[in-house]
Design a protein around this nucleic acid. Structure first.
Length: 135
DNA sequence: GCCAACGTTGGC
DNA sequence: GCCAACGTTGGC
């Protein structure tokens, strides 16, 4: 089982939008590093949903329910997307500020490479963020 | 194949 | 609104 962090601007697509839809294609990713991460995703993997630009916080957990397949919004046939479903909304969002201030999370790929929209998390990082959301 | 110019992302 | 990081494009 692998863990991931996926960013979306909430005014475009928020965690609540995902809850409302029940399941959604994570489309529109046009970055090779992010694409590689999505190709490595397996059914059952868990991902944190992070709100970028507005909110700047991890807000919920989702599950990868379908592995990489052609992105329906892509006409070139070059890009893939996965499908995700909501699992659990965090009791308390974990802000970027909190993440940055926590030495246990200093190694997060998202922190090192802030522009990457899909990044891996270690199991320890994933669990640590969940514990912060309950604090 | 290099690199300058330019565009985009995302935090501040 | 600004700027750093970084990916892409295009001239050479």
């Amino acid at each position: 089982m692998n863990y991931w962090l996926m960013k979306s601007e909430p005014d475009v697509f928020s965690y609540d939008d995902l809850v409302e839809k029940g399941k959604a294609e994570w489309d529109g990713v046009r970055n090779h590093a992010a694409q590689l991460n999505m190709k490595a995703m397996r059914k059952g993997d868990l991902a944190l949903f992070y709100h970028s630009n507005i909110g700047l916080e991890a807000v919920g957990i989702m599950e990868i329910v379908e592995e990489a397949a052609p992105d329906s919004t892509d006409e070139t046939g070059k890009w893939i997307a996965v499908h995700v479903a909501p699992r659990e909304k965090l009791a308390k969002p974990v802000t970027l500020k909190t993440i940055k201030a926590d030495p246990a999370l200093a190694g997060m790929v998202m922190i090192r490479q802030s522009r990457l929209s899909v990044s891996p998390l270690t199991e320890a990082e994933f669990r640590h963020i969940l514990s912060l959301s309950r604090a």
